[in-house]
């Protein structure tokens, strides 16, 4: 007994150290920093100013609202696309193809996000692959710039998020008894009603956990909005980066970081409330 507990601590110690040193400590330091700021004489003092700035400067909170809104849209589109895909994988595909399909979804994640985005850029740019073929086929006369707009950015974000929605959906759909669908069909329900009354309610926990993950990933994404969104797409994470790197204002940056954490948690809480769910139900 004594011995096994010792072994337990020996194995746990690195994890705990890791958590504490790399996650808890830096966060505490960031939290402290977010409440520090220079006063008029250039001395560092305790202050709420960094937080106040967020709410008083429209550019900051507007950027946040925009980011959150786009994250919600991305989550919703991802959900719409993932639903039939997951249904196909979980219910219609044969077992052997099933594995292959999941691997296929996983494949893009074997290269880094940066490479994936550059791949998209090569495809979509004015002198890119897609334009080349469209010109060849005579669909367009002059190449079109498909990069650097919101639609492309959302597409990129959806592409990056797909897997994180499909995996939880596939696992809840696999637990759905086929006879429920047939029973509903037998009782007079059409395709749409079956989706609305049987499949969606059954998949609710999967939808919620997938949505939370996708929402958080999208909100915290940096590369995709920056590279694919281009000139009009200030993302909140970029603003944090800019505060740290370009403006050397670490205090402001930390405050933004914590605001991101708080506000995104709030949005998720709100989403759970609106759909009348509890976090532990979703997690189980």
């Amino acid at each position: 007994m004594q011995r096994s507990r010792l072994v337990f601590w020996i194995f746990c110690a690195p994890v705990l150290c890791w958590l504490f040193l790399l996650i808890v400590l830096p966060h505490l330091d960031l939290l402290r920093m977010s409440f520090r700021g220079e006063n008029d004489y250039g001395d560092m003092v305790w202050t709420f100013r960094n937080y106040k700035t967020f709410f008083t400067e429209p550019i900051y909170w507007l950027t946040f609202v925009r980011t959150a809104l786009y994250a919600v849209i991305t989550t919703f589109i991802t959900f719409l696309l993932a639903m039939p895909v997951s249904f196909y994988i979980a219910k219609l595909a044969r077992a052997r193809i099933q594995g292959a399909l999941v691997i296929l979804l996983l494949l893009p994640f074997w290269v880094s996000e940066l490479v994936r985005i550059y791949g998209w850029m090569i495809l979509l740019r004015e002198s890119g692959v897609l334009n080349f073929f469209m010109l060849k086929l005579g669909i367009v006369d002059t190449p079109i710039e498909m990069l650097y707009n919101d639609a492309t950015m959302i597409m990129g974000l959806v592409y990056t998020s797909m897997l994180f929605m499909v995996v939880p959906l596939v696992s809840v759909m696999e637990s759905l008894d086929d006879s429920l669908i047939e029973a509903a069909h037998d009782l007079g329900a059409g395709q749409f009603t079956i989706w609305r009354t049987i499949i969606l309610p059954h998949c609710k926990p999967g939808i919620t956990s997938g949505s939370i993950v996708v929402f958080m990933l999208t909100l915290g994404n940096y590369l995709t909005p920056n590279l694919m969104g281009g000139k009009n797409s200030l993302w909140f994470t970029e603003q944090i980066y800019n505060q740290f790197i370009a403006s050397f204002n670490w205090n402001q940056g930390s405050a933004f970081g914590f605001l991101l954490l708080l506000l995104s948690s709030f949005i998720i809480w709100l989403g759970l409330r609106l759909t009348r769910q509890k976090l532990d139900e979703v997690a189980s």
């Binding site: 507007l62 200030l234 800019n242 505060q243 370009a246 403006s247 050397f248």
Partner: peptide
């Protein structure tokens, strides 16, 4: 100076 410039750069990027 950088702080002042950072704000302006954010403003330009965020403008629609």
């Amino acid at each position: 100076l950088e702080r002042m410039e950072g704000m302006v750069l954010d403003k330009i990027k965020a403008a629609q």
